[in-house]
Simulated scan of single mutants.
Amino acid sequence: MDDNKIKDVKWESVEANTGGIKFSNNRKKTRLKSLVKGVSFILIAAVSGGISGAYISNKKYSNKGYTQLNQSLIEPKNQNNQTKIADTSKNSITKVAEIVGPTVVGISNKAEGYFGLHDVGSGSGIIFDPNGYIVTNNHVVESAAKITVKFSSGKVLPAKLVKADSRSDLAIIKVEAQNLPTAKFGDSSKVKVGDTAVAIGNPLGEEFSGSVTAGIVSALNRKIQYNGAVYKVLQTDAAISPGNSGGPLCNDVGEVIGINSLKLGADQNAEGMGFAISINEAKDIIKSLMNYGKVSRPFLGIYGQSVVLQENKVQGVYINEVVPESGAAAAGIKPTDVIIELDNKKILRFEDLSDVLDKHKIGDSIVCKVWRNGKTIEVNIVLSDEKEKNK
Rank of each mutant, 00 (worst) to 15 (best):
K192V: 06
R27M: 13
S34C: 02
I224W: 06
K95I: 09
D169N: 00
D2W: 05
D3S: 12
G205H: 03
H118A: 10
I74D: 02
E75Y: 07
G53N: 06
S13R: 15
K33D: 05
F128I: 10
G272S: 14
S278R: 14
L249P: 03
S209V: 04
A270Q: 05
G301V: 09
K163H: 15
N70Y: 05
M290G: 01
D358C: 09
Y226R: 12
S34T: 09
V140R: 09
N109T: 07
V120L: 04
G186L: 08
K90V: 01
D3T: 15
Q235T: 02
V14S: 04
I134E: 08
D343C: 10
K10W: 07
V39F: 10
F115Q: 10
P76W: 00
Y226L: 04
V370N: 10
A330Q: 15
K369Y: 08
I200L: 12
A331C: 05
K334Y: 13
S124G: 02
N344L: 05
G301I: 07
T88D: 12
S48A: 13
V322K: 13
Y303G: 08
Y55V: 04
V120D: 02
K190D: 09
D2R: 07
K59E: 08
E98P: 08
F275L: 04
S92Y: 04
V191S: 03
D284K: 15
S365G: 11
V39Q: 03
T236A: 07
